[in-house]
Design a protein around this nucleic acid. Structure first.
Lengths: 345, 345
DNA sequence: CACAGGATTTACCACGTTGTAATCCCCGTC
DNA sequence: GACGGGGATTACAACGTGGTAAATCCTGTG
């Protein structure tokens, strides 16, 4: 550090015109050099390139964006990136975006309807070419009329083929049913559903439906006492709800948690209450978050292929940007039961 | 859905001029409405606003950028956003950024030097006003010469006051020392350090130093056999390294893991090996990731205040954007020992 | 030496926005 | 009824870039 790096001097960045003037050519020729246009005289190219290097010129992304109408940026909107599921999804999306030369912006909606509306409408400012959106509370009807200026890909539960938007679907009903049927097949009969919030929460609703479908198929009754209310899908709320459940219904012999976060909390509550997992109470979650592999006992779960979601969402987005006239497309995300220790199989 | 919403018509986004024409005013008046300029007639304001809503006009970030020279975007560069620590940090940064009307872009370096260099040079996110950067491998010397067009805030270990860049520091030596001293005070004498990679990994190096400092203070020898090599700071590698460690050094009675992820893996390995935690082997991690609260036993750790980091980093960034001539500033992140079950205290 | 024809370079403009500096309008006052 | 004064609105310009089309240069040919 010989240079003390004087922080002052609000230096204006070097523009294409500065280079042009210094190299005694037109701005357009500089542009041609930068963009490797064929018909540039080798001498000119060399001279311009030297000036570019000497001045440290770098093309302005903003200028290019304005010219091209594209920002090269994609937004990912999720409830919160702090949740392992969305963090991992975001990581995958970021990698895939980067592979395509796109920059990823992250928006958090906190699952609040107003924030979701803002994000879906691209308010307050339009900055991204496209949006990958994982809504939580937003009614489907609103989602079906996306802002026409921005490409949109929806992730999650939705009406399927009828939705006039590109979607990467998650069959949450099937996911839940798979998990609960596994518990029932293992002989459990008093299976709790952990994760009920309210009717507006699409994921919770579908997973409850899958849970009920599994009960129906097994000829078991719906027991409202086994469906405690949960404030948020967090380990803490999962723990609290499970603790309350155990007091109210000590006969419960299995817990299907609508996500792994709650499942982790549920296992902690069970342990605290002296119940053995899986012997006394079996537990199955959803998502296959990394932490579930290293708990004691390890957490059985339904894995949802996040890498698939990320790749498909970006592929859909990019293809739509290339050709907005494409008809809406729908892909379904693979999922599979991951049997570990907590379900007792 | 009465409208089939034909996906076609690659419609040009609505511009301020479209609105102006429809509302029969000048573009500038529309701008004035959008920017809440005082001297706009209420009637005009209402009329323009109606047209804005009807047409779905959203100001273009690009146009504004070109005009103002600011993008209103900040980039956060971390090794990977999938790691709970960085995911949580990113969530906090996103919230703080949003509060300030800034959009957050996320870059993942995967801890690769080449990627870190790219990021530090402003590629590919040159259009961010500022960068919050958490480097892993990058030598300090390189970090001291930031690109002059972009505000930079470094997060993490570094030389402190000497660095001519704004920093939010983490005293990883102190963090590690705090954890290990706690283990030693509890009577452990054969404490392993989990997380050694190589000398270029700044965090690992400083935490190892803290570990050694604690040993020195207690008059205990440095035992290379208690410092296994780890490929990545993941639960799996923590598990593998711990399993190997237990075979090589069955006498180990404590593990200090350089982060919670490895600590979780370590606990799984200990359990698999039939060691009781904390009775046989105590475990302390670093970071205080949420999952550590719900494991069995719960994980003792050193909490690093991520909300503080996020807030400070953005505050530093914003103030530097406002006044680039500010001298470099340095803040230190608070940390504290969180005693849970795994350390046996 | 004029000329065709390709290589090379350039003038012009638009992309969307907003600060600046007018201009315009309306109302009250003398 | 002219005038002052302030609110409301607008013309203009410029931010950096690159497509389009036209201009200019060069070389070989007849």
């Amino acid at each position: 550090m010989t240079t003390p790096h004087v922080a002052g001097a609000p230096r204006r960045p070097v523009t294409i015109r500065d280079v042009a003037a210094a190299a005694d050519v037109s701005p357009k020729t500089v542009s041609n050099v930068v963009n490797a246009y064929v018909h540039v005289h080798p001498d000119t190219r060399r001279r311009v390139q030297e000036v570019i290097d000497a001045l440290g010129y770098r093309p302005s992304a903003v200028g290019r964006q304005l010219r091209s109408g594209r920002t090269g940026m994609v937004a990912l909107a999720v409830p919160t990136i702090a949740a392992p599921y969305f963090a991992d999804l975001a990581a995958h999306v970021a990698v895939r975006a980067r592979e395509r030369g796109l920059v990823l912006a992250v928006e958090q909606t906190d699952g609040q309807l107003e924030r979701e509306r803002e994000v879906a409408e691209g308010r307050p400012v339009r900055f991204a070419d496209g949006l990958i959106f994982s809504p939580l509370e937003m009614p489907e009807a609103e989602l079906t009329a996306p802002h026409p200026d921005t490409a949109l890909v929806l992730i999650g539960e939705h009406a399927g083929e009828a939705v006039p938007v590109d979607t990467v679907g998650i069959d949450s009903t099937g996911v839940a049913r798979l998990a609960v049927e596994h518990l029932l097949a293992a002989g459990r009969t008093r299976v709790a559903f952990l994760g009920w919030k309210d009717i507006t929460h699409n994921t919770a609703r579908q997973r409850l439906e899958g849970y009920r479908a599994a009960l129906d198929a097994a000829g078991l009754p719906h027991d409202a006492g086994l469906v405690p209310h949960v404030a948020d899908w967090t380990p803490q709320d999962g723990l609290d709800a499970t603790a309350a459940l155990l007091r109210a219904r000590p006969d419960v012999d299995a817990v299907f948690a609508a996500d792994d976060q709650m499942a982790l909390g549920a296992m902690a509550a069970l342990r605290a209450a002296g119940r053995r997992v899986p012997d006394d109470v079996a537990v199955v979650g959803v998502d296959d978050v990394p932490a579930g592999r290293y708990t004691s006992p390890s957490l059985s779960t339904v894995a949802i292929d996040r890498a698939f979601i990320a790749e498909q969402a970006l592929a859909l987005l990019v293809s739509r940007l290339e050709d907005p006239s494409l008809p809406p497309r729908h892909v379904q995300t693979p999922y599979r039961l991951v049997v570990r220790e907590s379900c007792g199989s």
